[in-house]
């Protein structure tokens, strides 16, 4: 199957999948108790029937459910993600507003974990059984098993409070008037803790995956053959073992990339990082349906998109794979 047919059919299926997800999401969040008007009134400490009625009308909640569904789907078909009455802003602008912060955080964590994790895994495999292997596998196990929020809080206490190396929360220094470069450095300074915290788990996953995969390949017949014909050991590891072992890592990277938008709720919350994860979490506890559906949609689009990209990367990493729809 050639590349264009492959892409075309995957994209068509992707659009249908997204539509199905959108409809499913709509009913899923309606199944949760409460509605945005009741939550808003409930937070006010005083409310009456008139207020609830006014809010429901404003939010469009007094329409029949099918009408609401139709308005929502019709909007999405014209790339209109709706309006958040709670926040008094279009959903798309709310999401776009938060997107840079989230992509910066998840992107940094993605790169760090992919590079460090794969390198650690490769190193550990190469030195399997030696003390450096033990150190790496122990570290990877610890990172893998420790809850993210605990690492997040402990790193704040150690690196921000006790050592004073980095700020504990936030995206930038509030109230500072830096130039462009100063601001970039300031944001980078704030990025260190959350990006490392978020990256640790995936670093561990990549390391474990890479190590296991390389050790498995290292015993394969074609590697023995390569050795037998006199290829140098480092070339064997690099060209024969590492390259073949990378496929599961690519799969995992594709999964992680799909979570670039919605996968950092906890990190963003603990580090007060103004990203999409927090937007989504706030929308969830406030039952801000339109925002929640918008974030769900963007996240699912990312997953579908990165699945397609992952399949393409397989073809590059391993030319034997005939990408099939």
């Amino acid at each position: 199957m050639n590349l264009l047919t492959f892409l075309g059919s995957r994209l068509a299926k992707g659009v249908l999948t997204l539509l199905a997800i959108a409809v499913l999401n709509f009913f899923l969040i309606r199944a949760a108790p409460g509605d945005p008007a009741q939550v808003l009134a409930g937070e006010a400490g005083a409310a009456d029937e008139v207020l609830l009625q006014q809010l429901r009308e404003r939010f469009g909640l007094n329409e029949p459910l099918t009408t609401q569904l139709w308005i929502y789907i019709k909007g999405y078909l014209t790339f209109d993600l709706g309006f958040s009455y709670r926040q008094q802003q279009p959903v798309l602008s709310l999401i776009l507003d938060r997107l840079p912060a989230t992509l910066l955080l998840t992107g940094a964590a993605f790169l760090v974990s992919l590079i460090v994790g794969t390198a650690m895994g490769a190193l550990a495999a190469r030195r399997a059984g030696k003390w450096s292997d033990s150190v790496i596998t122990t570290l990877a196990l610890a990172f893998y098993a420790t809850p993210l929020f605990w690492i997040a809080l402990m790193s704040q206490i150690v690196f921000a409070l006790k050592l004073g190396l980095v700020p504990n929360v936030g995206y930038e220094t509030i109230g500072a008037h830096y130039g462009v470069l100063g601001r970039a450095l300031d944001i980078g300074h704030h990025l260190i803790l959350p990006a490392l915290t978020l990256g640790l788990f995936f670093t561990a996953l990549y390391a474990r995956m890479m190590r296991a995969s390389m050790l498995e390949i290292a015993g394969a017949d074609f590697v023995k053959t390569a050795r037998a014909k006199g290829v140098s050991p480092s070339k064997v590891w690099r060209r024969h073992v590492a390259r073949n072992a990378i496929l599961p890592v690519v799969t995992l990277a594709g999964l992680q990339a799909g979570q670039l938008v919605g996968g950092a709720v906890l990190t963003e919350t603990v580090f007060a990082w103004p990203g999409i994860g927090r937007l989504m979490f706030d929308a969830l506890v406030q039952r801000d349906y339109s925002v929640l559906l918008g974030v769900f949609f963007i996240s699912s689009a990312m997953v579908v998109g990165f699945n397609i990209i992952t399949d393409l990367v397989y073809r590059i990493a391993d030319p034997r794979i005939e990408a099939s729809a």
């Binding site: 809080l153 206490i157 409070l161 929360v169 509030i174 603990v270 103004p274």
Partner: peptide, 22 residues
């Protein structure tokens, strides 16, 4: 001259933010 209201969602992180002078 000015007041900044900072939005920090986690209670423990708020405590640390006070301790670090934020």
């Amino acid at each position: 001259a000015e007041v900044y209201w900072q939005i920090i969602p986690d209670a423990a992180a708020r405590a640390v933010a006070y301790e670090t002078g934020k």
